[in-house]
Design a protein around this nucleic acid. Structure first.
Lengths: 181, 181
DNA sequence: GCAGGGGGAGAACGTACGTTCTCCGTGGTG
DNA sequence: CACCACGGAGAACGTACGTTCTCCCCCTGC
Protein backbone atom coordinates (compact mmCIF):
# COMPACT_ATOMS: atom_id res chain seq x y z
CA UNK A 1 0.00 0.00 0.00
CA UNK A 2 3.08 2.14 -0.36
CA UNK A 3 2.46 5.38 -2.21
CA UNK A 4 3.92 6.04 -5.61
CA UNK A 5 5.82 9.02 -4.23
CA UNK A 6 7.50 6.86 -1.61
CA UNK A 7 8.53 4.21 -4.11
CA UNK A 8 10.05 6.85 -6.37
CA UNK A 9 11.88 8.49 -3.50
CA UNK A 10 13.23 5.16 -2.32
CA UNK A 11 14.64 4.42 -5.74
CA UNK A 12 15.92 7.97 -6.15
CA UNK A 13 17.70 7.86 -2.82
CA UNK A 14 19.36 4.53 -3.53
CA UNK A 15 20.53 5.64 -6.97
CA UNK A 16 21.35 9.31 -6.37
CA UNK A 17 23.24 8.58 -3.17
CA UNK A 18 25.04 5.58 -4.62
CA UNK A 19 26.02 6.95 -8.01
CA UNK A 20 25.64 10.71 -7.96
CA UNK A 21 22.99 13.05 -9.28
CA UNK A 22 24.04 13.50 -12.87
CA UNK A 23 25.02 9.86 -13.36
CA UNK A 24 21.45 8.69 -12.72
CA UNK A 25 18.87 9.26 -15.42
CA UNK A 26 15.15 9.46 -14.99
CA UNK A 27 14.89 6.19 -16.85
CA UNK A 28 17.01 4.43 -14.23
CA UNK A 29 14.63 5.73 -11.56
CA UNK A 30 11.67 4.50 -13.57
CA UNK A 31 13.25 1.05 -13.84
CA UNK A 32 14.23 0.89 -10.16
CA UNK A 33 10.89 2.13 -8.85
CA UNK A 34 8.60 0.37 -11.30
CA UNK A 35 6.73 3.64 -11.80
CA UNK A 36 6.16 4.69 -15.38
CA UNK A 37 7.74 7.89 -16.65
CA UNK A 38 4.34 9.42 -17.13
CA UNK A 39 3.31 8.88 -13.56
CA UNK A 40 6.73 9.91 -12.33
CA UNK A 41 6.40 13.28 -14.01
CA UNK A 42 2.92 13.68 -12.58
CA UNK A 43 4.34 13.39 -9.07
CA UNK A 44 7.63 15.26 -9.60
CA UNK A 45 7.49 17.93 -12.24
CA UNK A 46 11.17 17.63 -13.17
CA UNK A 47 14.37 15.87 -12.21
CA UNK A 48 15.38 18.94 -10.23
CA UNK A 49 12.29 18.77 -8.08
CA UNK A 50 12.91 15.06 -7.49
CA UNK A 51 16.48 15.79 -6.44
CA UNK A 52 15.29 18.40 -4.00
CA UNK A 53 12.64 16.08 -2.57
CA UNK A 54 15.28 13.39 -2.15
CA UNK A 55 17.54 15.75 -0.23
CA UNK A 56 14.69 17.04 1.93
CA UNK A 57 13.60 13.56 2.95
CA UNK A 58 17.16 12.42 3.55
CA UNK A 59 17.84 15.42 5.78
CA UNK A 60 14.84 14.64 7.96
CA UNK A 61 15.54 10.94 8.21
CA UNK A 62 19.25 11.32 8.87
CA UNK A 63 18.79 13.78 11.69
CA UNK A 64 15.90 11.83 13.17
CA UNK A 65 18.00 8.66 13.23
CA UNK A 66 20.88 10.47 14.89
CA UNK A 67 18.65 12.05 17.49
CA UNK A 68 16.88 8.78 18.22
CA UNK A 69 20.24 7.13 18.82
CA UNK A 70 21.72 9.89 20.94
CA UNK A 71 18.68 10.24 23.14
CA UNK A 72 19.14 6.72 24.43
CA UNK A 73 22.20 7.98 26.28
CA UNK A 74 22.13 10.25 29.32
CA UNK A 75 22.27 13.96 28.50
CA UNK A 76 25.65 15.59 28.88
CA UNK A 77 29.03 14.39 27.70
CA UNK A 78 27.75 10.88 27.10
CA UNK A 79 25.23 12.10 24.60
CA UNK A 80 27.79 14.15 22.75
CA UNK A 81 30.07 11.16 22.38
CA UNK A 82 27.11 9.10 21.19
CA UNK A 83 27.08 11.21 18.04
CA UNK A 84 30.44 9.75 17.09
CA UNK A 85 29.35 6.24 17.96
CA UNK A 86 26.43 6.70 15.63
CA UNK A 87 28.75 7.91 12.89
CA UNK A 88 30.90 4.84 13.45
CA UNK A 89 27.89 2.62 12.91
CA UNK A 90 26.84 4.56 9.83
CA UNK A 91 30.30 4.32 8.28
CA UNK A 92 30.09 0.55 8.42
CA UNK A 93 26.90 0.29 6.41
CA UNK A 94 27.83 -1.32 3.12
CA UNK A 95 26.43 1.41 0.97
CA UNK A 96 27.96 4.28 2.93
CA UNK A 97 29.35 6.82 0.51
CA UNK A 98 29.87 9.96 2.54
CA UNK A 99 27.49 12.83 3.13
CA UNK A 100 24.77 13.07 0.51
CA UNK A 101 24.74 16.84 0.88
CA UNK A 102 28.46 17.31 0.51
CA UNK A 103 28.45 15.04 -2.51
CA UNK A 104 25.53 16.84 -4.10
CA UNK A 105 26.97 20.25 -3.36
CA UNK A 106 30.35 19.26 -4.72
CA UNK A 107 28.76 17.92 -7.88
CA UNK A 108 26.49 20.85 -8.69
CA UNK A 109 27.46 23.53 -6.20
CA UNK A 110 27.01 26.90 -7.72
CA UNK A 111 24.52 26.98 -10.54
CA UNK A 112 22.02 24.88 -8.63
CA UNK A 113 20.64 27.03 -5.84
CA UNK A 114 18.18 24.43 -4.59
CA UNK A 115 20.89 21.90 -3.88
CA UNK A 116 23.21 24.47 -2.34
CA UNK A 117 20.43 25.64 -0.07
CA UNK A 118 19.59 22.08 0.95
CA UNK A 119 23.22 21.46 1.90
CA UNK A 120 23.45 24.69 3.86
CA UNK A 121 20.28 24.05 5.79
CA UNK A 122 21.22 20.46 6.53
CA UNK A 123 24.56 21.51 7.95
CA UNK A 124 22.95 24.34 9.89
CA UNK A 125 20.46 21.95 11.43
CA UNK A 126 23.21 19.52 12.37
CA UNK A 127 25.19 22.30 13.98
CA UNK A 128 22.06 23.40 15.82
CA UNK A 129 21.56 19.92 17.23
CA UNK A 130 25.16 19.72 18.40
CA UNK A 131 24.74 23.13 20.01
CA UNK A 132 21.82 21.85 22.08
CA UNK A 133 23.88 18.85 23.17
CA UNK A 134 26.78 21.12 24.09
CA UNK A 135 24.46 23.38 26.06
CA UNK A 136 23.01 20.31 27.76
CA UNK A 137 26.51 19.33 28.84
CA UNK A 138 27.19 22.78 30.18
CA UNK A 139 30.14 23.28 27.86
CA UNK A 140 31.22 26.43 26.07
CA UNK A 141 29.19 27.18 22.98
CA UNK A 142 32.32 27.39 20.84
CA UNK A 143 32.67 23.66 21.31
CA UNK A 144 29.74 23.04 19.00
CA UNK A 145 31.61 24.51 16.05
CA UNK A 146 34.61 22.33 16.80
CA UNK A 147 32.50 19.19 17.07
CA UNK A 148 30.90 20.00 13.73
CA UNK A 149 34.34 20.03 12.14
CA UNK A 150 35.30 16.72 13.70
CA UNK A 151 32.10 15.05 12.55
CA UNK A 152 32.27 16.58 9.10
CA UNK A 153 35.89 15.60 8.70
CA UNK A 154 35.18 12.09 9.89
CA UNK A 155 32.38 11.62 7.36
CA UNK A 156 34.51 12.77 4.43
CA UNK A 157 37.61 10.89 5.53
CA UNK A 158 35.67 7.70 6.13
CA UNK A 159 34.11 7.94 2.69
CA UNK A 160 37.39 8.40 0.86
CA UNK A 161 39.44 5.97 2.91
CA UNK A 162 36.68 3.37 3.06
CA UNK A 163 37.31 2.81 6.75
CA UNK A 164 35.06 3.55 9.75
CA UNK A 165 38.07 4.41 11.91
CA UNK A 166 37.83 8.21 11.53
CA UNK A 167 34.76 8.08 13.78
CA UNK A 168 36.93 6.73 16.58
CA UNK A 169 39.58 9.41 16.07
CA UNK A 170 36.90 12.06 16.08
CA UNK A 171 35.36 10.61 19.23
CA UNK A 172 38.72 10.67 20.95
CA UNK A 173 39.33 14.28 19.91
CA UNK A 174 35.88 15.22 21.14
CA UNK A 175 36.59 13.59 24.46
CA UNK A 176 39.81 15.54 24.78
CA UNK A 177 38.11 18.83 23.90
CA UNK A 178 35.35 18.13 26.42
CA UNK A 179 37.90 17.37 29.10
CA UNK A 180 39.93 20.49 28.29
CA UNK A 181 36.97 22.86 28.08
CA UNK B 1 56.12 30.27 -24.58
CA UNK B 2 53.81 28.30 -22.36
CA UNK B 3 53.34 24.71 -23.43
CA UNK B 4 50.06 23.49 -24.85
CA UNK B 5 49.73 21.00 -22.02
CA UNK B 6 50.01 23.75 -19.43
CA UNK B 7 47.41 25.91 -21.14
CA UNK B 8 45.00 23.01 -21.29
CA UNK B 9 45.59 22.09 -17.66
CA UNK B 10 45.09 25.69 -16.59
CA UNK B 11 41.75 25.84 -18.34
CA UNK B 12 40.77 22.39 -17.10
CA UNK B 13 41.58 23.29 -13.51
CA UNK B 14 39.63 26.51 -13.62
CA UNK B 15 36.59 24.86 -15.17
CA UNK B 16 36.61 21.46 -13.47
CA UNK B 17 37.20 22.94 -10.04
CA UNK B 18 34.68 25.72 -10.53
CA UNK B 19 31.83 23.78 -12.11
CA UNK B 20 32.42 20.10 -11.58
CA UNK B 21 33.74 17.35 -13.81
CA UNK B 22 30.64 16.29 -15.67
CA UNK B 23 29.34 19.80 -16.11
CA UNK B 24 32.35 20.81 -18.20
CA UNK B 25 32.58 19.52 -21.74
CA UNK B 26 35.71 19.14 -23.79
CA UNK B 27 34.46 21.95 -25.98
CA UNK B 28 34.44 24.34 -23.04
CA UNK B 29 38.06 23.43 -22.36
CA UNK B 30 38.90 24.01 -25.98
CA UNK B 31 37.30 27.45 -25.85
CA UNK B 32 38.94 28.40 -22.55
CA UNK B 33 42.41 27.19 -23.51
CA UNK B 34 42.41 28.24 -27.14
CA UNK B 35 43.74 24.81 -28.06
CA UNK B 36 41.92 23.04 -30.85
CA UNK B 37 40.13 19.79 -30.14
CA UNK B 38 42.51 17.93 -32.40
CA UNK B 39 45.59 19.09 -30.52
CA UNK B 40 43.84 18.61 -27.23
CA UNK B 41 43.23 14.94 -27.98
CA UNK B 42 46.84 14.57 -29.11
CA UNK B 43 48.01 15.65 -25.67
CA UNK B 44 45.33 13.98 -23.56
CA UNK B 45 43.91 10.84 -25.07
CA UNK B 46 40.49 11.23 -23.42
CA UNK B 47 38.57 13.36 -20.99
CA UNK B 48 39.30 10.82 -18.27
CA UNK B 49 43.02 11.20 -18.73
CA UNK B 50 42.69 14.98 -18.64
CA UNK B 51 40.72 14.73 -15.41
CA UNK B 52 43.40 12.57 -13.87
CA UNK B 53 46.16 14.92 -15.00
CA UNK B 54 44.23 17.84 -13.51
CA UNK B 55 43.94 16.07 -10.16
CA UNK B 56 47.60 15.02 -10.18
CA UNK B 57 48.83 18.54 -10.82
CA UNK B 58 46.46 20.05 -8.30
CA UNK B 59 47.59 17.61 -5.64
CA UNK B 60 51.23 18.59 -6.14
CA UNK B 61 50.58 22.30 -6.24
CA UNK B 62 48.23 22.34 -3.29
CA UNK B 63 50.59 20.47 -1.03
CA UNK B 64 53.60 22.43 -2.20
CA UNK B 65 51.82 25.71 -1.43
CA UNK B 66 50.86 24.49 2.02
CA UNK B 67 54.36 23.30 2.79
CA UNK B 68 55.93 26.50 1.52
CA UNK B 69 53.66 28.48 3.81
CA UNK B 70 54.13 26.30 6.88
CA UNK B 71 57.89 26.16 6.57
CA UNK B 72 58.11 29.89 7.14
CA UNK B 73 57.11 29.25 10.74
CA UNK B 74 59.30 27.63 13.33
CA UNK B 75 58.96 23.86 13.55
CA UNK B 76 56.79 22.58 16.37
CA UNK B 77 53.38 23.77 17.47
CA UNK B 78 53.68 27.00 15.51
CA UNK B 79 54.05 25.14 12.27
CA UNK B 80 51.04 22.94 12.99
CA UNK B 81 48.87 25.98 13.62
CA UNK B 82 50.18 27.53 10.42
CA UNK B 83 48.29 24.85 8.50
CA UNK B 84 45.03 26.33 9.71
CA UNK B 85 46.17 29.86 8.95
CA UNK B 86 46.89 28.73 5.43
CA UNK B 87 43.42 27.19 5.17
CA UNK B 88 41.93 30.44 6.39
CA UNK B 89 43.70 32.28 3.60
CA UNK B 90 42.62 29.71 1.02
CA UNK B 91 38.98 29.89 2.11
CA UNK B 92 38.97 33.59 1.32
CA UNK B 93 40.04 33.21 -2.28
CA UNK B 94 37.09 34.21 -4.41
CA UNK B 95 36.94 30.98 -6.37
CA UNK B 96 37.27 28.69 -3.34
CA UNK B 97 34.85 25.84 -3.72
CA UNK B 98 36.00 23.21 -1.26
CA UNK B 99 38.39 20.36 -1.81
CA UNK B 100 38.77 19.39 -5.46
CA UNK B 101 39.32 15.77 -4.47
CA UNK B 102 36.29 15.53 -2.22
CA UNK B 103 34.16 17.15 -4.89
CA UNK B 104 35.46 14.85 -7.61
CA UNK B 105 35.11 11.78 -5.45
CA UNK B 106 31.59 12.74 -4.44
CA UNK B 107 30.64 13.30 -8.04
CA UNK B 108 32.04 10.11 -9.55
CA UNK B 109 33.14 8.05 -6.55
CA UNK B 110 32.71 4.41 -7.31
CA UNK B 111 32.76 3.62 -10.99
CA UNK B 112 35.76 5.84 -11.61
CA UNK B 113 38.78 4.18 -10.04
CA UNK B 114 41.28 6.77 -11.23
CA UNK B 115 39.49 9.59 -9.45
CA UNK B 116 38.92 7.56 -6.31
CA UNK B 117 42.59 6.65 -6.21
CA UNK B 118 43.63 10.27 -6.73
CA UNK B 119 41.46 11.34 -3.80
CA UNK B 120 42.79 8.60 -1.56
CA UNK B 121 46.40 9.35 -2.33
CA UNK B 122 45.92 13.10 -1.90
CA UNK B 123 44.39 12.59 1.52
CA UNK B 124 47.07 10.09 2.46
CA UNK B 125 49.78 12.54 1.48
CA UNK B 126 48.14 15.31 3.49
CA UNK B 127 47.89 13.06 6.50
CA UNK B 128 51.53 12.12 6.02
CA UNK B 129 52.58 15.75 6.04
CA UNK B 130 50.62 16.46 9.19
CA UNK B 131 52.22 13.41 10.77
CA UNK B 132 55.68 14.84 10.14
CA UNK B 133 54.62 18.14 11.68
CA UNK B 134 53.20 16.32 14.69
CA UNK B 135 56.39 14.32 15.08
CA UNK B 136 58.37 17.55 14.76
CA UNK B 137 56.38 19.00 17.63
CA UNK B 138 56.99 15.92 19.74
CA UNK B 139 53.28 15.23 20.06
CA UNK B 140 51.53 11.85 20.09
CA UNK B 141 51.10 10.36 16.64
CA UNK B 142 47.36 9.98 17.16
CA UNK B 143 47.13 13.74 16.99
CA UNK B 144 47.79 13.66 13.26
CA UNK B 145 44.55 11.79 12.61
CA UNK B 146 42.63 14.30 14.70
CA UNK B 147 44.17 17.26 12.90
CA UNK B 148 43.24 15.69 9.56
CA UNK B 149 39.63 15.60 10.66
CA UNK B 150 39.67 19.23 11.77
CA UNK B 151 41.22 20.39 8.50
CA UNK B 152 38.94 18.23 6.38
CA UNK B 153 35.88 19.37 8.28
CA UNK B 154 36.93 23.00 8.00
CA UNK B 155 37.35 22.73 4.21
CA UNK B 156 33.93 21.20 3.69
CA UNK B 157 32.16 23.47 6.14
CA UNK B 158 33.78 26.57 4.68
CA UNK B 159 32.73 25.53 1.20
CA UNK B 160 29.10 24.95 2.08
CA UNK B 161 28.70 27.90 4.44
CA UNK B 162 30.71 30.25 2.24
CA UNK B 163 32.59 31.59 5.24
CA UNK B 164 36.29 31.27 6.14
CA UNK B 165 35.49 31.09 9.84
CA UNK B 166 35.71 27.30 10.16
CA UNK B 167 39.48 27.63 9.77
CA UNK B 168 39.57 29.66 12.97
CA UNK B 169 37.44 27.15 14.85
CA UNK B 170 39.67 24.35 13.63
CA UNK B 171 42.77 26.29 14.67
CA UNK B 172 41.38 26.81 18.13
CA UNK B 173 40.50 23.13 18.46
CA UNK B 174 43.99 22.18 17.28
CA UNK B 175 45.51 24.49 19.87
CA UNK B 176 43.40 22.88 22.58
CA UNK B 177 44.36 19.37 21.49
CA UNK B 178 48.03 20.31 21.39
CA UNK B 179 47.82 21.79 24.88
CA UNK B 180 45.99 18.75 26.23
CA UNK B 181 48.26 16.12 24.59
C1' DG C 1 58.09 28.08 -56.58
C1' DC C 2 56.43 23.80 -54.81
C1' DA C 3 55.37 19.41 -52.29
C1' DG C 4 54.10 17.85 -47.89
C1' DG C 5 52.88 17.67 -43.33
C1' DG C 6 51.11 19.61 -39.14
C1' DG C 7 47.56 22.34 -37.20
C1' DG C 8 42.94 25.06 -36.82
C1' DA C 9 37.89 25.39 -37.39
C1' DG C 10 34.17 23.15 -37.14
C1' DA C 11 31.10 19.45 -39.11
C1' DA C 12 29.91 14.75 -38.31
C1' DC C 13 28.70 10.58 -35.71
C1' DG C 14 27.02 7.88 -32.09
C1' DT C 15 25.18 7.96 -27.74
C1' DA C 16 22.72 9.41 -23.65
C1' DC C 17 19.44 12.01 -21.40
C1' DG C 18 15.25 15.09 -19.89
C1' DT C 19 10.84 15.55 -21.23
C1' DT C 20 6.69 14.79 -23.96
C1' DC C 21 3.67 12.18 -26.93
C1' DT C 22 1.24 8.17 -28.99
C1' DC C 23 -0.97 4.11 -28.72
C1' DC C 24 -3.12 0.62 -26.39
C1' DG C 25 -5.24 -2.09 -22.64
C1' DT C 26 -8.10 -2.05 -18.49
C1' DG C 27 -11.30 -1.28 -15.04
C1' DG C 28 -14.98 1.20 -13.29
C1' DT C 29 -19.74 3.42 -14.35
C1' DG C 30 -24.25 4.21 -16.81
C1' DC D 1 -22.58 -3.78 -23.24
C1' DA D 2 -20.77 0.95 -24.32
C1' DC D 3 -18.06 4.59 -22.76
C1' DC D 4 -14.26 6.90 -20.83
C1' DA D 5 -10.63 8.30 -17.88
C1' DC D 6 -6.44 6.59 -16.34
C1' DG D 7 -2.14 4.38 -16.55
C1' DG D 8 1.72 1.57 -18.76
C1' DA D 9 5.22 0.83 -22.36
C1' DG D 10 8.04 2.79 -25.00
C1' DA D 11 8.77 5.78 -29.19
C1' DA D 12 9.85 10.46 -30.28
C1' DC D 13 12.11 14.95 -29.98
C1' DG D 14 15.55 18.22 -28.91
C1' DT D 15 19.79 18.84 -26.91
C1' DA D 16 24.39 18.05 -25.27
C1' DC D 17 28.54 15.74 -25.29
C1' DG D 18 32.89 12.68 -26.25
C1' DT D 19 35.38 11.64 -29.99
C1' DT D 20 36.74 11.50 -34.83
C1' DC D 21 36.89 13.24 -39.48
C1' DT D 22 37.17 16.63 -43.35
C1' DC D 23 38.80 20.42 -45.38
C1' DC D 24 41.73 24.02 -45.81
C1' DC D 25 45.64 26.97 -44.68
C1' DC D 26 50.31 27.90 -43.69
C1' DC D 27 55.00 26.92 -42.89
C1' DT D 28 59.00 24.40 -43.78
C1' DG D 29 62.65 22.27 -46.69
C1' DC D 30 64.31 21.85 -51.21
Amino acid sequence: METVEARVLDAAERLFYGRGLQAVGMDAIRAASGVSLKRLYQVFSSKDSLVEAYLRRRDHRWRAALERFAEQRPAGRERILAVFDWLHQWFQEPDFRGCAFVNSYGELGAGHPGVAEAARSHKDAFRGYLATLVAGAGAAEALADQLVLLAEGAITTAAISGSPEPALHAREAARALLAAG
